[in-house]
Design a protein around this nucleic acid. Sequence first.
DNA 1: GTCTATACCTTGATAGAC
DNA 2: GTCTATCAAGGTATAGAC
Lengths: 214, 214
Amino acid sequence: METLESLHATEHIGRKGTNKDSVTVMGTKGEEKRQHIIDAANALFYHKGFASTSFADIADDAGIPKGNFYFYFRTKEALLQAVVDERLKRMRALMIGWHEEFKDPRQRLHRIADIPSADKCEITKFGCPMGTLSAELGKQDTANHNFTVAIFDQVLAEAEICLTEMGRPKADAKRLARHLLVRLQGAATMAHSYNDESWIVNESQAVHAWIDSL
Amino acid sequence: METLESLHATEHIGRKGTNKDSVTVMGTKGEEKRQHIIDAANALFYHKGFASTSFADIADDAGIPKGNFYFYFRTKEALLQAVVDERLKRMRALMIGWHEEFKDPRQRLHRIADIPSADKCEITKFGCPMGTLSAELGKQDTANHNFTVAIFDQVLAEAEICLTEMGRPKADAKRLARHLLVRLQGAATMAHSYNDESWIVNESQAVHAWIDSL
DNA sequence: GTCTATACCTTGATAGAC
DNA sequence: GTCTATCAAGGTATAGAC
């Protein structure tokens, strides 16, 4: 996936129009505005859903007039792509940060298990940002929505590394990493459905015990 | 919840307009048409999502003209309510059927654990019918979407009964029943996101082993 | 009771003035 | 580069003929 490479280039300023998301060359100021739009859309897609978020909503939150929009993103899908890239970038930074900060793989697994707990209030209100987006897009494009799971892949890959370091054979590590994601995602979905964060609290606790038992 | 009571009355024919969903008294034929609309909407809400399903879609599938629609359902939300009631009715029948068919509570738990596996193909394509609907509605009405979880409640209640019969104290049974739902829901969500049914297959297998270990 | 025609609104997207 | 005005399409819902 080429987006993974592009994440390393944090200095986007003045990049050429070859990037699919930007319509043309733009200066520092335009780049900032572009980022404002992405941030506003990121929050709105999460809180209201992709389809239910209109350009008017985004323009309002980003503080730009509605029409100016298409200068930065040709279509709504291009904006979605930019938002997913942004989320991917952040999740990647989180995983890399933990990987460097904690030498003990078990400790890193515990950090991953705490991801839902850390945002349990928001997740109870709006669900898992990735899970709900992926679920929504999955109903529309059966084919083209797979790019959203790149964020899950980040967590999955790091969990797999942890389990391998803990002595698990590859197939085993893969299986257990997926099991971990299933439980975290399930807890988030149920908490959102019931509007009750105890689903996250209780399952997190069980997951931590499970990690210690490995 | 009053809808639970109304489920016992399977003979709806000629009921009065006091029912919020029906606009007026209607004959057998009208009742059949009403059911056709519910069935069509049920499938479309699942496959396309609630917001993305238009009256035109439903009318098309149900074989009625677009305008005739409002004779049976005043608003889209009224139709949604009817669809949820329908799903609730079916889930209830399923739970009651198993409860009567299998005396062994552990066996009944295994049946519950197999719910996602039984429809793994559809779930991979469209997600869990309840989970995706609840997730979608949760983004719109933070307050009024709780009625959708009544279907989860059915499964939760039956699982709790099973675990109690297996000798678990009440608090324990509640906790384990929720854990079961978390895992099934998580498997469904991940399978849908990745468009890969092995998420369901693998987690189901683990859940069966877990039930046997209880 | 059943259906046609349409009102009215919001959406994503465009054209072109400045 | 930035913004206003507007378009065409599609949505829910209604009015009223038959």
